[in-house]
Computed example of a mutant assay.
Amino acid sequence: MSDGHLHSFQEQVNDLLLRHRSFLDVTSKYQESSSRVNRALTKAVTECGCIKIKADKQSYPKDAPREEWKDYFKTHLSGQLCDHCQDIVKTEMGKNLFYLTALCNLLQISLTDVIQQESNHLSTLGVFNLR
């Protein structure tokens, strides 16, 4: 997505956010939307079963070079979201992005700047920014 698309999306959110324009409303809706993303993913596991989680301790050889760590760490996921679950997860992620963008608007922060700043941060710190 280009900077222009992000800016247009941010303007669209600004134009459409009417009922919950209060900072308190937006922050609570952002938190709620994050929970709904988590709930949709949980339901994909527990109700649909299209994805499965098998988790255990993440381990790697202590003498392995850092470049190889990705080969040892697992996502703990197997399977793939079915079309139905993917639609729901994407919808909930979209709502979460809407409220994140609304927060940016209320605080007069450019969503493009947020993304660019994080990208710069990741590029600058590189491997020291392991998350």
Rank of each mutant, 00 (worst) to 15 (best):
S2C: 11
G4C: 09
G4E: 11
G4S: 11
G4Q: 12
H7N: 12
S8D: 09
Q12H: 12
L16C: 07
L17V: 09
R19M: 13
H20S: 04
R21S: 10
R21G: 07
F23T: 08
F23I: 10
F23W: 07
L24M: 07
L24R: 08
T27M: 14
S28F: 12
S28K: 15
S28L: 11
K29W: 06
Y30C: 15
Y30G: 12
S34Y: 15
S35I: 06
V37D: 02
N38G: 07
R39W: 02
L41S: 00
K43E: 02
K43P: 00
K43V: 00
A44E: 00
A44S: 02
V45D: 00
T46C: 02
G49Y: 06
G49R: 04
I53M: 06
K54T: 15
Q58L: 03
Y60V: 14
K62T: 14
D63M: 13
E68Y: 10
E68I: 05
K70N: 13
K70A: 12
D71L: 05
D71I: 04
K74Q: 10
K74N: 14
T75I: 11
H76V: 15
C82F: 02
H84F: 01
Q86C: 00
K90R: 07
K90S: 06
T91R: 04
M93R: 02
M93I: 00
Y99A: 04
L100I: 09
L103G: 11
C104R: 02
L106V: 04
L106E: 05
L107D: 09
Q108L: 09
L111C: 06
L111N: 06
T112Q: 09
T112F: 06
T112C: 11
I115S: 14
Q116L: 14
Q117G: 13
L122I: 07
L122T: 10
S123F: 11
S123H: 13
S123K: 10
L125K: 05
L125D: 05
F128P: 07
